[in-house]
Structure formats: structure tokens, C-alpha cells
Amino acid sequence: MTFTWPIILIIILLIISVVFNILGTIGLHRFPDVYTRLHAATKCTTFGTIFVTFTVIAYSVRLYILTEEAKFINMAIHTLIALIALLATNPTGAHALARAAHKMGVKPKKAVRDDLKDADQHKKKTVKKMVIKKDKAQGEVN
């Protein structure tokens, strides 16, 4: 293999993708709680997978220029669609998991500030007050 510049570009993209995917996996074990783990898992692996798709797009464009077979154009377009699907779905999934974790009652470790917990407590208090008022009103009716 001679190292012409398209091959060097492809190898650089591939190395970036592998490094970020492995960093995401390490972060999954290194961080202390769910939310920080989601940071590592979502950002690093999404970024790594974006670079995987860039690698494959560059590779298939190069193969198309070399062989002039139409299936490589098809491959590049399909990889682009996979990239769009990943970009739309991955952060949304992370958001759903974070919200579920908070509703389950998992507390962020080492947190210096938690606005959402305060808001929830405020909401619960107001709901309780309303329930009490309702009970009183019903009692008066009865």
C-alpha cells in the first residue's frame, strides 16, 4: 500500500473514530453516577460513530473514482442516511434515559447544585396543599 493522501485521510478519520469510541467506553466505567456516565456514553460514542461514517464515505468515494461502479455511490448515500438517523436519535435517547433516571429518584453524586429537585419539591408541596384544600371542601360539603 502506498500512502497517497486519500489513504492518509481515511486512516486519520478511522483513528479518530476508534479513539473516541474507546474513550466513551472508558468514561462509562470511570465516572461516578448515571448522568456523568451518559455524558461520556452519548457524546464520545456519537462523535466516534460520526467519524466512522465519514471514513466510510471517504472510502466509498475513493473506490468509486477507482472502479467507477455505481454501488459505491449507493453505499456513500446510505452511510449519510445512517449518519442522519444517528444524529437525530442518539441525543433523544440520552435525554429520555436522563429524565427516567431523575424520575426514578437517582440523585446526581457530588452535585453542587440541583434546580430540578427544588422545582419538584415545590411542585409536590403545592399539589399536597391543593389536595388538602380539596379534602376540606369535600368534608364541608358532606
Binding site: 474513550l23 472508558i26 468514561g27 470511570r30 465516572f31 461516578p32 448522568y35 456523568t36 455524558h39 461520556a40 464520545c44 446526581p108 453524586k109 457530588k110 452535585a111 453542587v112 447544585r113 440541583d114 434546580d115 430540578l116 429537585k117
Partner: peptide
């Protein structure tokens, strides 16, 4: 942050 472990999280 993954490598050094310096975090200071909050919501």
C-alpha cells in the same frame, strides 16, 4: 475529563 476525572456536576 474522562482522562483526568475532574468533574463538578450539577443540574
Amino acid at each position: 475529563r474522562v482522562i483526568t476525572g475532574k468533574i463538578e456536576p450539577g443540574i
